[in-house]
Design a protein around this nucleic acid. Structure first.
Lengths: 127, 127
DNA sequence: CTAACACTTGAACAGATGTTCATATGTTTT
DNA sequence: AAAACATATGAACATCTGTTCAAGTGTTAG
């Protein structure tokens, strides 16, 4: 008895067709949700978060970032490429060196909200 | 973990000590940055993003979510556990069924900003 | 009690991810 | 021209991640 196009997973006893029918149309396209997850994946790495935090303060060249984070220049370069593809940073050449900077203000908001969440929920484990 | 002075990666020609000295003190603790990356990792998966979007609309039981997303109830349950550990959702038992809901409003903000970023940067590839 | 149900959990496997190492590109200096 | 420098990139490797499958809770109905 396929009552709606969703369902078939549980018996009808559990699934609530009226909710499914109401929620389903509100979902964004699969493609958009995929892109969104891809974007957050970029934020989901300590090295990249640290790079972004560094760039909060100032535009900076690759080897300065590497020095600050105490990491290989190659590793930083790999991560900068990912950040750039996600349009979170942009680069500018000046002679031999290339300067990276934040490309966007959403970055600050997203990271800021993430920090708030952590402070609020996770922050007082022993308070 | 040799926390030597910053530098040693490039010659002094490249690294700019005054920038390093100014930026370094502004960085949050390693632990906080790690937690932040962990949080964004949670957002960085299509299934979990879809679950969160579903919960934007309404509190919902596991098998309804599974039905909506056309996935195994087990897979959904695994992901809900991760979302719960990150304090992004909370659960409530009612008889045999367990209802999940958003635990926080930061979730909406973060996802909203992420969406904005995508619309803005990635949105018009062919516009 | 037992059966049915909604959900959880652990192990296992395929696929993705980040760093390293070696090498390549592009720019300036000599 | 070649050498020196800042950065980029490809392959390889170990580690992590998400789903599936099978078995485990805990709750209600008969």
């Amino acid at each position: 008895m396929a009552r709606s196009k969703y369902a078939e997973v549980c018996e009808e006893v559990c699934t609530h067709p009226e909710i499914l029918g109401r929620v389903a149309p509100e979902m964004p396209d699969e493609e958009r949700l995929y892109d969104l997850a891809e974007l957050f994946k970029v934020f989901g790495d300590t090295t990249r978060i640290r790079i972004l935090y560094v760039l909060f303060e100032s535009e900076m060249c690759v080897c300065d970032i590497a020095a600050l984070l105490n990491m290989t220049q190659s590793a930083i370069s790999h991560q900068l490429r990912i950040l750039k593809q996600a349009r979170l940073v942009r680069s500018r050449r000046e002679g031999k060196t290339i300067f990276y900077a934040l490309d966007d203000d959403h970055v600050r908001t997203v990271i800021g909200q993430g920090m708030e969440h952590i402070e609020e929920k996770h922050g007082r484990k022993r308070a």
